[in-house]
């Protein structure tokens, strides 16, 4: 699969490393060149410096041939906009955006975007560890 990851933080870098190791073709986008040091030494994918909400940057990352698109920058709004570009402009089949704000997450899920909300997910995981023991 061709995968474009926007945001090379802990989650983005981990996803990119894992996908790369399991043989997928990965390209990862981040505004800060220094962010790419989180990638493993033998990362064989492509790194692109730029913002994930610029169509030209996304094209350089190969979004036109992408099968999956993941937006995991630390900004909710950047992830939302990047995901909508991937979905509406480039028709990427699988688009996922991380959205910390539960209300925003709910809104965009209803609008048909595949979203993940760490806030509610982690809170309920913690609750279940407390009450399962």
């Amino acid at each position: 699969m061709n995968v474009v990851v926007v945001g090379c933080g802990r989650v983005g870098a981990r996803l990119a490393n894992t996908l790369d190791q399991s043989g997928h073709s990965v390209s990862i986008v981040d505004l800060q060149p220094s962010a790419f040091r989180r990638l493993s030494q033998d990362f064989s994918g492509q790194t692109v410096i730029g913002t994930g909400i610029d169509e030209d940057v996304l094209k350089a990352a190969g979004i036109e041939e992408a099968d999956a698109f993941i937006a995991v920058t630390n900004g909710d709004n950047t992830n939302i906009m990047a995901a909508q570009i991937a979905q509406v402009v480039f028709n990427v089949p699988h688009v996922t955006a991380r959205i910390y704000d539960p209300v925003r997450e709910d809104t965009y899920r209803r609008m048909g975007i595949n979203t993940i909300c760490p806030t509610t997910t982690i809170a309920s995981l913690i609750m279940s560890t407390i009450f399962s023991t």
């Binding site: 909400i53 709004n77 939302i80 909508q84 209300v103 809104t107 609008m111």
Partner: peptide, 16 residues
């Protein structure tokens, strides 16, 4: 000054 913020503000205003 940020397009992504302006987009989300308008969409939230419309949707919710």
């Amino acid at each position: 000054g940020d397009d992504e913020d302006n987009l989300v503000i308008c969409q939230m205003a419309k949707q919710r």
